[in-house]
Every structure is written in structure tokens, then in C-alpha cells.
Design a protein around this nucleic acid. Structure first.
Lengths: 348, 348
DNA sequence: TTGTAGGCGTTATCAT
DNA sequence: ATGATAACGCCTACAA
């Protein structure tokens, strides 16, 4: 059996081909107007129960799937959220994306993802793309977006949709900032080391993001407070396993009395521990080590790694929920801070 | 200075507000028809050099940005590629997404990403979403999509766009399969162990994906070939660090003569090494260990980890390039296999 | 309860 | 080289 549908014939057998079925086609078959079908599709009132049932059946039978593109055009809403990440390969960001996507998916939103890198030009370009794609909201993952450049771009291209920045602060009327208290957290790490008698500490960072700058501040603050008399020691290594490895060993050679280390990320700490052990140093007996992020790396090294849990899970979940709330028109706070806490393991 | 634009006034000062400027508005100001503006916007021929210049200037001045939604509706192409991942948090998949996104971005394509989980129902649902969103192509990341269920769904919902499956095979006319030769690779791993005098081997896997099944087959094949006389020993651990840890130790207790291990993923191997060391066993002297994926984990443990590089980088790059090729209408092979190779480090 | 008509912003096909 | 006009598929007053 064949029925004529607009541009061709579609077969009504078991596995009918998915020709494009429009609301118009259904209307014609059901002998009603397209608007009635539309009402049914969108669960709107004012359609007789029997007609509704009849149409629903047809919808199913023909596997009608609304064209989001057309729908977006008329409703002026794409039901998409744009996500900007400097590098999607960093695990705590992907975790964030995971929760975001899961949460938004529940409510029928899709995620448009872009790796922007950290260059000003690229970031600006992608913010333009977000406007072009008419996303309903934007999420900037990571403190790298806390720049004047991004702020200008948002001001120019994304003024009429809510923008969320994850672990950073941008002061604009439509921007919501959700940050972790890394500064306070790192200060507490110094305190922990100090409590264990480790007053000769060092802070090792690969490169400075706004977030890492806060950690550094927290470190210096902590040393001033809990190790008074000792100088803070900050090492910047650059990115790459060999660099971190060498920097750690170099640090021990130039400052052999160091007995406590805080790394700006768990991954660095894992490499650092390896570097220490291969110098014949024991962790934590000779040097206590703390990482940051409380990621899966912590359980993967020997000894297992004490780490500052900056609550990235909570942070992502908060962002996810907030995005939806705002899209629903609810009012939420424009700036939220989430407190971090230390998870102690064998390395301290 | 103010100029009337459709729905309101827009200010021509330094930081003008981004009212929605349409092709129509520009046309009116330039005293030409919308079609001419459209031609300019799309770099089409048949427009006088002077008019083109004039319009380009206006476009810039008013920060005109075309509405992708409307454009998609008429061109029937969203310039979006849909990417399905079972869990975006697994690193080798995010690596893939990274390359894909970077490559496609160059050519003006955007990436819609969905975590589908591995349930049949969800996967089907997201494949429907891809149709709804009218993506120009779909990429399924990972062997988990090599199922009858997915095949049926593709057949029903995605017949008219190219679909790519990364590290899996689905036989449909519009589906392109790019797979790594993991079977052969793992067999080579057994050979390496055997060459080092490790004939009592074991293969440890957390759970069975089609890819992991191939690895297992490769393992068994390898044992039959290179360790004839010895029985293959396969351990399924389930997911989670403690489970893997315990399974490794349990394995050594029940089979104390085991002197070579292949883990289905680097991460498992890292945990396995820790478990072995904490039993007082030396790696590689007592037990040689090989991981799979050649990920960053390999450099992060002590000893550093020998690993089968299944060329996921090449695989992703190949997919990325292929997607673009096909979108350009080029013809490419429907099935590609990429050979893997072993990267030897300290653990063997 | 249902249908009609107009519009969302763009591109594409004809004329001119 | 340029312009009028009709789609694209859907939603939504407003009219019936």
C-alpha cells in the first residue's frame, strides 16, 4: 500500500523509509488543518479528544519528527546551550560537560561544544559563533575565560542570553559566576602541612590561569599565616610531563630542606611523586605531597594522593541546575561560591 | 545619531547594542534588494564591485551576523555534526572529540555532543534527536555502538546522512567504519611477553565492549600462537578502582606463577601495577605488565608503562578528515582499519 | 474546537 | 547586475 506524500511515495510496510514527513502531510491525511496537528504535537489544549487521539496515532504511524530548525526559526529559541572549553581534554572540564549535558538533556536541551584554546582571537570568534547559532544560554568552562577580552566579546555579542562562567567571575548583568574557593582551600592545605610539621613548603604550578593565581595567593597567604618565618616558594614549570618531573627534582636540589609540596593539579603531583621517589626520597616521610582536584589520579599512584577537593562536581551540578533555572525564568544569585575541602590520603 | 531599524532604534555610537540586524535591514539602508545583500554575504558572483564594497562596509558597521537557523531551514543543512559518546569522561574519546571538533571547526561546522550511556533505549532516543536536529553527519565514538539496536535505529532515522563509527563496524550503505586493529595488536603483545620469557600470561578486562572482546580474542590467539602449551587466563573485574585492585591480587594468589599481564586499558594497568607492588612483587622482574591505549597514564606510574598504541589519535584524525571529505561529496572507503603498535617502556 | 493567514530570516529561481 | 517572489517547516494570533 502506498500513499502519496508531498514529494514522493512512502511505503507503509514494516520498515517504511523515513521520507521527510511534515505537519502538513499529517494534516492532509487526517483531514484537519496544520494548526490542529501543531496543537497536538505541542500538547496544547483546545482540540477534541477524539481528533487528538486520531492525530497522535497518525503521528506515530508515520514516525513524524518535528523539524527543530523550523521550530527554532519561529520560536526564536534553539533549545541549545553553547559550551566553551579551552581544551576538552582536561578531565575536570569534561566531568563538568558530562553533568551539564545530562542535566540539560532531561529537559530537551542540546549541547553545542567548542574548544576555543586560550587565545583572545579564537575565544572572540567562538563567542560570535554562539550568537550566530542562537543558543539559549552559554557556559564558559574554566577560569581562562575570566579576561577583559571575553568580557568585551560578551558585551558585544551575547547580551540577551544568560551566560554562565564556571570557576571564574565576570561582572556583567547577564553573567552568572560560580566559583570554587580555591584560595581558601589551598591556604588550608598549607595549614595541614604545617600541622604535620612541614613548614618548608613549595607550591608547584604549570602555568597561570586565573584559577591558579588564586591558588598561589592561597598558598602565600597560608605560609604567612601558618608557617610564619618561612618564605613561600613558588615554582612555575610549564606544561609537559618531563618539565614537571625535572622541575620537581631541581626544586629538591636547590632547596633540599623542602618537606611539603602542593601541586596546582593532581596530575602534576603524581608526576612529582614519581620524581621524588626516583631521587630516593620517601613520600610522605621525607616530603609530604598534596594535589588539587581530587581526581581519579589520586587513587592511582603510590602512595595515594592527598588532594584538595575543589568540589568541581558540585560546581558543575550547580551550573547545570542554574542554567535550567534561568532558562525557566527563575531568579538566581549572580555569584555563588562553593567551599572546597581536603581529602587526606597516604601522601601526607 | 540614530537610525531606524525595523523594531527599534539602534545607536551608532562606539558600543552599539546588538539589536538583531537582518539582511533586510542592510538592504533597506543600502538601497538594494535583500538578494543582493545575500549574494555579498555568501561571496557569490554577479554583484558590481562597487555595490559589493558598499554593502560589505555596512555589514561590518552594523555587525551583521547571519541567522544560522533561517539559513539552515532553507538550505536544509545545519552545518552541525552530531557526536554520540557513551561517556564523555573516558579520555580517549574526548581526545577524539577534540580532534574532530578542531578539524570540523576549520570548515565552519559545529559539534553537537550527546552522552548516550550504553543502554539501548537511550541510544535510540539520541539517534532520533540527531534526526530532529538535522545534523549533516553523525559520529558514533566507540565500539559500544556496534549493536543490532543501533543498526536498526540508524536504518530508521539516519538513512540520508553519512554516519561514522569510530572503532566499530556497522554494515549499512551510509555508514563508514574506522577501526583499530586491536585484535592483532594484543596478539603482538602476547608475542612481546613471550619473547621476554613470560609465557604464563593473563588478560584483565573490566567489562566487555565489542572492542574489548576483540582484545580478548587477540589475547587468546596470541597465547595459542606464542605460548603453545599454556592456557589463556582471562579475568573480568567489573568497573571501579577497588575491584581492579582486588582482582589483580586475587589473580596472583590463585595463579602465583603468572609472570605477564595485559590489561584492557592503561588505567587498569596502572592500578594493577600498584596492586602488584603492594604485594611485594616487582615489575617487570616478577611480572611484566602491558596496558592498552598508550595514554598519558603510561608516563605517570612507576615503572612507566609499556602500552599498545591503538592509534586512537590517527583514528580520530582519520574520522575527522573523512567526515569533511564525505560532506564535500568526495568518495571514500566504507571501511578502514588502522594498525596498532606497541610502545615499550619500563614495565616489560 | 478548528481553520486561515502571516511571518520567522534566509536562500534560490526566475525575471528584468 | 539586480530585484521580486516563492519556498523552507513550523507556530500563533485571529477569525470562524
Amino acid at each position: 500500500m502506498y500513499i502519496y506524500i508531498k514529494l514522493g511515495f512512502i511505503h507503509l510496510g514494516a520498515d517504511r523509509l523515513p521520507q521527510k514527513v511534515t505537519i502538513y502531510d499529517i494534516a492532509k491525511i487526517a483531514n484537519v488543518s496544520p494548526s490542529t496537528v501543531s496543537r497536538v504535537v505541542n500538547n496544547q489544549p483546545n482540540v477534541k479528544k477524539s481528533t487528538r487521539a486520531r492525530i497522535i496515532k497518525l503521528l506515530e504511524e508515520y514516525s513524524y519528527i518535528p523539524d527543530e530548525t523550523a521550530r527554532s526559526l519561529v520560536t526564536q529559541s534553539s533549545r541549545m546551550v553553547g559550551i566553551l572549553i579551552s581544551d576538552i581534554r582536561t578531565t575536570h572540564h569534561t566531568d563538568g560537560v558530562f553533568y551539564l549535558q545530562r542535566e540539560l538533556s532531561k529537559h530537551g536541551y542540546s549541547c553545542l561544544i567548542y574548544n576555543t584554546g586560550s587565545g583572545d582571537e579564537e575565544q572572540l570568534q567562538y563567542i560570535q559563533v554562539l550568537q550566530q547559532k542562537k543558543v539559549d544560554a552559554a557556559v564558559l568552562m574554566g577560569s581562562v575565560y575570566q579576561t577583559e577580552n571575553v568580557k568585551r566579546a560578551l558585551k558585544k555579542y551575547l547580551t540577551d542570553i544568560p551566560v554562565f562562567i564556571c570557576n571564574g567571575v565576570i561582572d556583567l548583568p547577564n553573567v552568572f559566576s560560580i566559583v570554587a574557593d580555591e584560595r581558601g582551600g589551598v591556604s588550608e592545605c598549607v595549614r595541614l602541612l604545617s600541622d604535620k610539621g612541614r613548614k618548608n613548603t613549595a607550591f608547584i604550578v604549570n602555568h597561570y590561569t586565573p584559577s591558579n593565581l588564586l591558588k598561589r595567593e592561597g598558598y602565600e597567604e597560608g605560609v604567612a599565616r601558618w608557617c610564619s618565618g618561612n618564605e613561600p616558594l613558588v615554582i612555575e614549570t610549564g606544561t609537559g610531563i618531563p618539565l614537571i618531573y625535572q622541575a620537581t627534582q631541581e626544586l629538591m636540589r636547590s632547596h633540599p630542606d623542602t618537606n611539603g609540596m602542593i601541586f596546582s593539579e593532581d596530575m602534576l603531583a603524581v608526576i612529582g611523586i614519581r620524581a621524588l621517589k626516583e631521587m630516593g626520597l620517601r613520600v610522605p616521610e621525607d616530603v609530604a605531597v598534596i594535589g588539587i582536584n581530587n581526581s581519579s589520579y589520586t587513587e592511582m599512584c603510590t602512595p595515594t594522593l592527598t588532594s584538595l577537593d575543589n568540589m568541581l562536581y558540585d560546581l558543575s551540578m550547580t551550573v547545570a541546575k542554574d542554567v535550567y533555572s534561568v532558562l525557566q525564568g527563575e531568579h538566581i544569585s549572580r555569584k555563588v561560591m562553593i567551599y572546597s575541602e581536603i581529602v587526606e590520603r597516604q601522601s601526607t
